[in-house]
Amino acid sequence: MSPTVYHYLTLSAILFSMGTIGVLTRRNAIVIFMCIELMLNAVNLSFIALSRHLGNLDGQIFVFFVMAVAAAEAAVGLALMITFFRNRESIEVDDINLLKW
């Protein structure tokens, strides 16, 4: 017996929730960033599972674009972190609070 689409979607939901918790609880910007990657991958998994289930390649194409965006995000996001670290000697997001009232 092989796993159905529900198995994959459930797993995807668990991974996505864990990513969410990570984003909301961690303070290290790089860890938050990795949690976001985790969420993206959870979504990718459901895309591919559904693509398989529906017999259609469009979902996989979408995953491809998600990867492209993730790559771009990684480049820019990490560059931002380096810049920020240079100025503040830290990448704790609690130190990034200039944008308040």
Binding site: I21, L24, T25, D94
Partner: peptide, 21 residues
Amino acid sequence: EANKRYAHSVAGGALAGVVVL
């Protein structure tokens, strides 16, 4: 990361994550 700052909003974040799940 410094430990004292870690558990700052675990409860809220975990709650939100569980709700999503």
